[in-house]
Computed example of a mutant assay.
Amino acid sequence: MTTIAMRLCLVRHGETAWNAEQRMQGHKDLPLSPEGLEQAEQAGGLFVGLKAAALYSSDLQRAWQTAQPIAAALGLPITRLTALRERNYGRCEGMIRHEVAARYPDDATALRERTPDYVLPGGESLNQHRRRIEACINALAEKHAGETVVVVTHGGVLDLIYRRATDTPIEKPRDFPIPNTGICWLNIAGDDWQIEQWADTAHLGERGAIEVTANF
């Protein structure tokens, strides 16, 4: 039996103050910066006229603030899902790279080397986060087979989805972009995840080349 694909549009949230400072956010619930609010408005304009069945967002405010202009353009409510949250970085949240290295060297090594099963104290491992995200996307694909769905989420979530779609090992250093309000399109049918377009930032003009993240 042929599995009917869901067409999925993924949007990373707009910039926050901690993005600009390269601080690890995780589950910390920060709002968008003025720059991020402007990015969200610019992204929202892309969705005018798009026929989508549903709009989902992480329940953290930087994501659902980004989703608000998209909701206005689509004429849809925002369904917030805790499962779409960023990885929980536990005790490392709020820190920048050298602060983690100085205070928690084992955490810094695991983050830098992308150790799959290292559980950050108070947080999650990469594999725990991966399982959460893949279960969420698979559930949406089953619910919305044959439909177009928009999801607003986080950089770490997009990292894992890209790796799943391209069969890229979770330990491999990232060599693909995940800019704020980057637009990604995928087709998901069962175990087959195919990328149509990745990290489009044409709506941001020259600022589309800037990526602010706390990657190790």
Rank of each mutant, 00 (worst) to 15 (best):
G49D: 03
D29Y: 06
A67R: 01
Q65F: 02
P69D: 11
Y56H: 12
G49Y: 03
L46Q: 12
G44P: 03
Q65C: 03
Q61R: 15
A54H: 06
F47N: 10
E38G: 00
D29T: 09
G45R: 15
A52L: 01
E35K: 12
A71W: 04
D29L: 05
S57V: 10
Y56S: 00
F47W: 10
L32I: 08
E41I: 01
G26K: 12
L37H: 04
E41T: 02
I70Y: 04
L50Q: 11
E41S: 06
Q68G: 02
E38F: 00
A71E: 05
A54K: 00
H27S: 07
L50N: 09
I70T: 08
K51H: 14
Q25S: 04
A71K: 01
L46E: 08
L55W: 01
A71Q: 02
L32C: 11
E35L: 14
Q68V: 07
L50M: 13
K51Y: 07
E38D: 12
G49K: 02
G49M: 08
G26H: 14
K51T: 15
Q25C: 01
G36L: 06
D59S: 09
K51W: 00
A52D: 05
Q42R: 15
D29P: 02
S33E: 09
P31S: 08
W64P: 09
A40D: 13
Q42I: 00
A52G: 03
A63P: 13
D59K: 07
E41N: 05
Q61S: 11
D29N: 13
Q68S: 15
E35D: 06
L55I: 07
P31R: 05
L37E: 13
Q42S: 11
A40K: 09
A43D: 12
P34L: 02
G49S: 10
G26C: 14
Q25A: 04
H27C: 10
Q61L: 07
Q65I: 02
S58M: 10
A40P: 09
K28T: 15
A43C: 15
Q68L: 13
L46R: 15
Y56I: 08
L30Y: 02
L37W: 00
S33R: 00
A54F: 07
A67Y: 10
Q39Y: 10
A54I: 04
G45C: 05
L55S: 01
L30C: 04
